[in-house]
Design a protein around this nucleic acid. Structure first.
Length: 211
DNA sequence: GCAAGGATCTAA
DNA sequence: TAGATCCTTGCC
């Protein structure tokens, strides 16, 4: 069969994620996140991110200091911070900057590249409705933070997991992309800060008033 | 348009 | 300790 075209050899290094959070969030647009899960390769091109800064950012979980929930956000760069939102969904973040800082990049949407069958299966597991009624299409697999986390099988147990080697790593963008900027989605504090980055031409970004 | 869902924060 | 809030989604 085919050789899987994904290898951690050229994966982004610790240095990439140590930088200032909004720079990391912007530079992650076009990068490819790869996860080996149960012998299956899941991969997606990152098309939408948000930067959550340290103690000066009222919208960030780290704003009120370190707690059990946000502990992973204060860990070293290039590790996962996963949290539960609205009691139902999970959101996956990549920790940035220096250890103890409390900054991260939220992964909001990716374009599915590999493992689509598996993503579709994971996105359907909690669906009790008939498949024929509203079949999930490629665009709906990962176009939102909760959807992305579900498709890639992220869980609270994945907190602190490294993104620097198999089974989880990020490959740099293979071409330069024109990145658009907007306010972040779904927040009330610091709502005017331009810390959301996305590919304006991509049909795989999450549905929002900013397009 | 809004309910679901559970942890976390805030005001007493 | 009760009540509001929360980096969302999918069904009504």
């Amino acid at each position: 069969m085919d050789i899987v075209p994904y290898s951690p050899v050229n994966a982004l290094s610790h240095h990439f994620f140590e930088r200032e959070t909004s720079e990391v969030a912007r530079d992650l647009i076009g990068a490819v996140i790869v996860r080996e899960l149960g012998g299956i390769t899941l991969a997606g091109r990152i098309v939408e991110t948000e930067a959550y800064l340290h103690e000066t950012d009222a919208a960030s979980h780290s704003f009120r200091g370190r707690t059990k929930r946000n502990e992973a956000m204060f860990g070293e760069a290039a590790r996962l911070y996963v949290y539960r939102i609205y009691g139902i969904h999970l959101c996956a973040n990549i920790v940035t900057e220096t250890e103890g800082r409390g900054a991260a990049v939220l992964l909001r949407a990716v374009e599915p590249l590999a493992g689509l069958e598996e993503m579709m299966r994971r996105r359907n597991t909690t669906q009790t409705r008939q498949l024929s009624k509203r079949q999930l299409c490629k665009k709906q697999l990962c176009n939102g933070p909760g959807k992305l986390a579900q498709a890639f099988g992220f869980s609270l147990d994945d907190n602190h997991q490294s993104l620097l080697q198999t089974p989880l790593y990020v490959l740099p963008a293979n071409e330069p992309y024109e990145v658009a900027v907007s306010p972040r989605i779904g927040i009330t504090k610091a709502a005017d800060a331009l810390l959301r980055f996305y590919l304006p031409a991509s049909p795989f970004v999450s549905p929002s008033k900013w397009k």
